[in-house]
């Protein structure tokens, strides 16, 4: 088994941390995993993205051109990764930040209003966790429970009070994606 995931959005949307949460969960589930951020000029504002590879065996390339799974938290990321996704792949799109439907019919696009759901829970910054939750609905290699446990184990002590809301965000995203 090997699955590649790209998470993309604006800086500040929690792209890198969202990816790290998945990475911790994969590690704790006993899998091989790599997390690599995009860096360079794009790190200074504009889009940010990270690539996560989860596998049973030693991982080769930590970068992937055409991933089977991706999260686009804004319109530029939707434009970019809709083009680059593998045929048959799934793209989770933050509906709150895009104003168009899918162009391709050979991929599955799941629209989730991440900002609105995060605001309903009480913190807009949780939008990344909503999107991760949605992704888990199409990532059988990791369960909601795996990610919850990873959050609990690796969240810095000073942020532990935010744990229940993070878990709620994961669940709400998962449910919103499941019905699609």
């Amino acid at each position: 088994m090997q699955k590649e995931i790209i998470i993309a959005g604006f800086g500040g949307q929690g792209v890198l941390f969202g990816g790290q949460v998945l990475t911790f969960a994969a590690m704790d589930a006993g899998k091989e995993v790599t997390w690599i951020p995009s860096y360079g000029p794009e790190m200074r504002g504009g889009t940010a993205n990270c690539t996560i590879v989860i596998a049973d065996d030693e991982i080769g390339s930590p970068l992937v051109k055409n991933p089977p799974l991706a999260i686009a938290l804004n319109l530029p990321s939707f434009d970019k990764y809709e083009d680059e996704l593998q045929t048959g792949g799934t793209l989770v799109v933050n509906k709150s930040m895009v104003d168009r439907g899918p162009k391709r019919s050979d991929i599955k696009v799941i629209f989730v209003p991440c900002n609105e759901i995060a605001e309903e829970i009480g913190d807009r910054k949780l939008l990344n966790m909503v999107a991760i939750g949605a992704l888990l609905s199409v990532l059988p290699e990791l369960t909601l429970k795996d990610v919850e446990t990873a959050l609990e184990a690796h969240m810095p002590e000073r942020h532990k009070n935010l744990l229940p809301k993070n878990i709620e965000a994961l669940k709400r995203g998962y449910e919103a994606a499941k019905v699609q």
Binding site: Q20, M27, E32, T34, W35, I36, P37, P62, L63
Partner: peptide, 10 residues
């Protein structure tokens, strides 16, 4: 290289 330096692995 920057890949090895910046990536995270268990």
């Amino acid at each position: 290289d920057g890949c090895i330096g910046q990536m995270m692995e268990p």
